[in-house]
Every structure is written in C-alpha cells, then in structure tokens.
Design a protein around this nucleic acid. Structure first.
Lengths: 229, 229
DNA sequence: CGTGCGCTTGACTTTTTTCAATAAAGGTGG
DNA sequence: CCACCTTTATTGAAAAAAGTCAAGCGCACG
C-alpha cells in the first residue's frame, strides 16, 4: 500500500515490522496545507501529530509586537506536533507551512495504542524527543550566552557541515527567517553580514547564498574567541 | 524492599505494577553527591539517568566567561539526565548538586529492557520529555522575545501559583541563581528588583523572600503590557 | 509595469552588560 | 560566641549590543 511504503522511509519508523506499518498506514490521514497556511496555532488542542511527506513547515513562537523565534524548520520525513500527544495539553507553539506541504496525520489514541503493542516505536519516539531536547539546549545556550555574530557563525558551520563541509552555503530560507532562527531581527542580521563581509570572512552577494572565505575566522567567531570590529 | 517503595512514589513510575517496581529496584544504584559536587559534565557519556531521592540538582550551561544559564532545578522525585539514554550521545549540559543529594541511578540498558517489556513506562517517559520540551519552548520564548522585567514577573507569578497563589514568595535559591534561571546576571536582576520595589509592585526586603504587593502590575509586566519607569 | 516584499543602511534609543567598589550575610574555626 | 573570610547582593558610571524607526533600493510576481 502507498502510505505504508511512505512510512517505511521515515526514520521514526525504521525497522518497524511490516504488520505495524500497515497498522500505521490505516490510522494515518493525509492532509495538505498551502504555502503560508497555519498547521496549528499555540493553544490549539492536539489530537495527533504530523509527519511531513512533502514540503516544509516552520514551528515558531511570536511576541505581541510581531517578533518571531523559529524553533524548528521541519522537512520531509520529520514528525512534528507530538508534544500534546504525550502531555495531553495544548500546542506550545505555532506551525505554518513554508511551502505547499503534505503530511500524514497520526491520531493520538491510535498512536498510543500502537506504542502499547510495539515498544520499539516508543523507543524511536523517545529518541526523537531527546534529540529535540538536545537541540533546544543548544538554542537556549545560543540565546542566553552568545552574541548574534557567534550564533550566525555557528549556524553557517552547521549548514556547511550538513553539506559535507562545502564553503558555499545555500540558506534555503529568506534572511528574515534566518534572523528568526538566530533570535534576532533582519536589520541586525543584515548589519552583521555586512561586517563579516567587510572583514573578508564571508561573501554574501546573492540573496540566499553565503560563501565562507575564512573558515578559521568563522570557527573563532563561533567559539567566541574572536569578535567583529 | 526499601528502594521499590521509594520508586513507587515517583510520578514517572505511578501506576507501575509491583513486579516491575521490583525489577527497577534491583537495577537501581544508590548514589550520593555532596553540595557543589558535579553529577555530570557536558560531554560526558551517559550510561544511565538519575532520580532524586533527596536534595536538589541544577542542570545548566556555561559560557567561556562564566555566565550561567540554568535549564532546570530538579527536586525530589524528579528524573534527570535521560537525554543520552535515548540519543546514545553525550550529556548536553552540566549538573551540579545544589545541596547534599541522594539519587537512584538507573542504568541505560536495564531501563531500555524494561521499556521493551512494559510500554507504560515508555509512555510515562514520553510524557516527562514532552513536558520538558514544552518548558524549554517557554524558556526560549522568554530569552528571545521578552525583556528581563517580564521574565522576572512571569517567574514570580509561576512561583506564586505553585504556592496556591500566595503573595509571599520564597525563592529557595539565591538571587545569583535566579539570575541564572532568568538568563541574566545578578547586577541586572538586582536593579530590576530595585525598580519594582520603588514602584511599589513588590517588596524585596529579605534575602530569599519577595512579596507581591500589586499583583495586577506584575501580571501586566509579565504580559508585556506595562514597563518599568 | 507597477506594487509589494525582502533586504540594506543610517541615525537614534533602549536594554543589558561590564567594571569597580562597597556593603551585608553566612559559615567556620578558634 | 566572636572574629574572620568567603560568598552574595547592591549601586554607580560607562560601554556595548541589539532593537526601533525611517528611508530607499531592487527584484519578483502578478
């Protein structure tokens, strides 16, 4: 069956026996969201979670005056919105589709029943949540203990690493959204990019492309051992 | 058996059948840490997690220049250090005993085996981790989107609520540690407490005691609808 | 071909931190 | 019980980091 096949490629369900994939496939509900559409809002009750089949979703918080802190950008194969499944409470953040997005929606009760019969699913989910906790500790550390240039530098290295250490970095998000990830605003990000460019640490010609020119300098910035003029 | 009885009072294991409590009791190892002692350091490999039987532990990150961001302060009955159990990676933060502390240490492999045979333990742990994720989203929101006075006000309300809405608040931590929780430094916290006192929103006479005088003002501060002069 | 959104830059303000000095509190050992 | 010493808290003045407001540019999209 089509859905079962899709599910079999999802890391969360790696190694799951075919019979359980079938069970999951029967409980999954296909959903579709247009670019910019809300998947869920903070405070909504959560009756299940989503797994992205195509597209991208940003999970974020906002302040009254409109500043945005992005918590995650989720891509194909990634689950999101699981927290209320296990707490029984409401969504702690917003989620919007960044592009046209298809998801499989797994209803809460069905999923919990699956866990009861198949503990390996529980272990996978525990791993996912633990990874996410680890990710949040890094974000908290960034926001609290490091300045924006260091956060940006660390982000560039992270993206570079994800691309086998390439110097050319393709942010596949707008700089406004990058600011939202780094916990700052577009103006500040723009200024810091300009300073890094002037010091020949990076080149930032094109809109969504940055090139690392002086990797050592970027690493020192990320480690807080160097500061911009 | 003594340990099984202790375990039966821990929220994580509520409703667990006696036979599994016995299993847990057999795998648990009693540990003791003196005030100020390190329980684990960031980067240490994690071979299991702790449950506090007596005492308190702070889990935190530090910056090269010594600033500290507290992630949690854990008390009796609370588990901590579980992330590496499920990610297989290293501890993402430090943990120090704030007071003399006894814990039960649950080895990773034993616990994972228990989960395989008893999924309700998995569901409890999923709930704990989800709660913690939710808590982190609040901290991230605070650090990124709110100023220190708003964070402090929200913290006071949170503690007050935890004490049945009492106006008298007993921080049972030092103000330096409170600053670490709020993501600031003692000087800044001290100044903000002084400003709030001058505006008669709180009284902050004693060392670890704060009294809410004008609850409405505190609520408005927390909501960002009011600012200090 | 315009309109709008994303991005940049400048000038200014606010918030927070840094550095330094002092005061008060708490625990320890004589 | 007191003196001492370390830790904790407070306050001032100055600096730095980041945010606000406003203006302008350019590219994309309708």
């Amino acid at each position: 069956m089509d859905i079962a096949k899709q599910l079999s490629h999802i890391p969360l369900f790696q190694g799951l026996e075919p019979q359980y994939l079938q069970t999951l496939a029967r409980m999954a509900i296909k959903k579709f969201f247009k670019r910019g559409e809300t998947v869920f809002a903070e405070g909504d009750p959560g009756t299940g979670f989503h797994i992205i089949t195509t597209g991208r979703v940003k999970v974020y918080k906002t302040s009254p005056d409109g500043k945005e802190q992005i918590l995650h950008i989720m891509s194909q194969g990634e689950p999101f919105g699981e927290v209320p499944v296990f707490t029984g409470q409401r969504f702690p953040a917003y989620a919007d589709a960044l592009t046209d997005t298809s998801t499989l929606f797994i209803p809460r009760d069905d999923f919990i029943n699956l866990i009861r019969t198949e503990p390996s699913v529980a272990l996978s989910m525990l791993s996912v949540l633990s990874q996410r906790l680890k990710g949040f500790t890094v974000l908290i550390e960034d926001l609290s203990l490091r300045e924006v240039p260091a956060r940006l530098a660390a982000y560039l290295l992270y993206i570079s690493e994800r691309n086998q250490g390439a110097d050319d970095i393709n942010l596949d998000i707008s700089k406004t959204q990058l600011a939202g990830i780094l916990g700052t605003i577009p103006e500040t990000l723009s200024r810091i990019l300009a300073r890094m460019t002037k010091e020949e640490i990076i080149e930032s010609d094109d809109k969504r492309h940055i090139r690392i020119c002086d990797r050592t300098a970027v690493e020192e910035l990320a480690a807080g051992q160097r500061r911009l003029a």
